[in-house]
Amino acid sequence: MFKFITHRSFLANLLAVVVISLVLLLVFIVALRSFTHHNQSVKVPSVKGMDLEAATRTLKSFGLEVSVEDSAYRDNLPKLSIVWQSPDAGDEVKVGRTVYLTINRAIPPVIELPNLLGLQFKFAESSLAGYGLKLGDTTYKPDFARNTVLDVLVNGQSTKAGTKIPLGTVVSLVLGQGVAQTEIPVPDLFGMRLADARIVMEANGVVMGSVVPDADVTDTAAAFIYRQNPPPVSADGIINLIHSGQTIDVYVGKQLPVRQDTTK
């Protein structure tokens, strides 16, 4: 009789332990699901262009966590605004997921101006875009190399390759106009100083070619032109013609030349 009672008590206790364990396990699973938002998901809102405070507030309101992972520079977005986000806007994610943000730098990074001289316009344009620079004005000057970069301007000043400039800087290009179809008389440069001759040639759309100084010339800009090729008039007295964009070679000396009278 005693053994039967003891045996019944043991079974009842065992059953109670099992029931209590199952109840505790069920409570744990329910609590865990509630804590981890099991099976709860949201669509990630777009926070691109927002400042960090607004982006954080927006993402938190959707039950999402925020982490700033990187920085970049975009001149078309406000400083310290959101450039990228991951996961992307519209992605469906689990509540509590971390959204990683990239913010826009307050100060643009500095880069070196690439070498554009001698490039055709389309290649120079692609190079500027690849370096994160903006194409500004394109102007033309007489030169036989049509659409070739002759000069690079930053803030209106000629700028050499390798100069450090901010990312997003506007760069203007001076291009060769090419040889024009119309012809003009060759300008007479005899007796001019080289500096003055350059002005006359530019006004006529003609390019300065080779400058050949005499042996005793130390300052070519102040030297005088005593010969040019092509000359303004041929040996038989016919006026020579030249296309805009073509070159004239000049020979310079220290002394003001005297034109010889060829009519005698």
Score class of each variant (00 low, 15 high):
224 F>Q: 09
246 Q>M: 06
235 A>P: 03
217 V>C: 08
213 P>Q: 05
240 N>I: 13
250 V>G: 10
222 A>M: 09
233 V>C: 02
235 A>T: 04
247 T>E: 15
223 A>N: 12
241 L>Q: 08
218 T>P: 02
224 F>V: 10
227 R>E: 09
225 I>A: 05
210 S>D: 11
212 V>G: 00
245 G>R: 03
228 Q>W: 09
209 G>W: 11
207 V>G: 04
252 V>F: 01
247 T>C: 10
224 F>L: 10
255 Q>P: 00
235 A>G: 07
250 V>T: 08
216 D>C: 04
220 T>F: 00
227 R>L: 05
226 Y>D: 00
205 G>I: 05
205 G>H: 09
230 P>T: 01
253 G>K: 05
226 Y>S: 00
251 Y>P: 02
205 G>E: 08
214 D>K: 13
237 G>S: 10
245 G>I: 03
225 I>H: 03
236 D>W: 04
253 G>L: 01
206 V>L: 07
242 I>M: 05
217 V>K: 10
234 S>W: 14
254 K>A: 04
223 A>Y: 12
250 V>N: 08
233 V>T: 13
217 V>M: 09
229 N>S: 13
225 I>K: 02
221 A>V: 00
226 Y>N: 02
213 P>S: 02
243 H>F: 04
231 P>F: 00
229 N>H: 12
204 N>E: 14
205 G>C: 06
217 V>P: 09
251 Y>L: 01
208 M>T: 14
211 V>S: 04
203 A>K: 14
226 Y>E: 01
233 V>P: 06
248 I>R: 05
211 V>T: 13
214 D>N: 14
245 G>S: 07
205 G>R: 08
250 V>I: 09
201 M>F: 14
251 Y>M: 01
231 P>K: 12
212 V>L: 04
214 D>A: 11
250 V>A: 03
235 A>E: 13
223 A>I: 09
207 V>T: 15
204 N>C: 11
204 N>T: 07
235 A>L: 13
233 V>R: 06
207 V>P: 06
245 G>A: 01
206 V>Q: 03
205 G>P: 12
218 T>I: 10
210 S>Y: 12
254 K>F: 00
224 F>D: 05
247 T>A: 14
240 N>E: 14
207 V>I: 10
252 V>C: 06
201 M>A: 12
235 A>F: 13
240 N>A: 11
204 N>F: 13
212 V>E: 03
208 M>L: 15
201 M>T: 12
213 P>D: 07
232 P>F: 11
240 N>S: 13
239 I>D: 15
238 I>F: 11
241 L>S: 04
228 Q>V: 08
239 I>P: 15
221 A>N: 15
248 I>P: 04
212 V>N: 05
208 M>V: 15
252 V>H: 07
221 A>L: 11
212 V>C: 00
232 P>W: 12
229 N>A: 13
226 Y>I: 01
222 A>H: 03
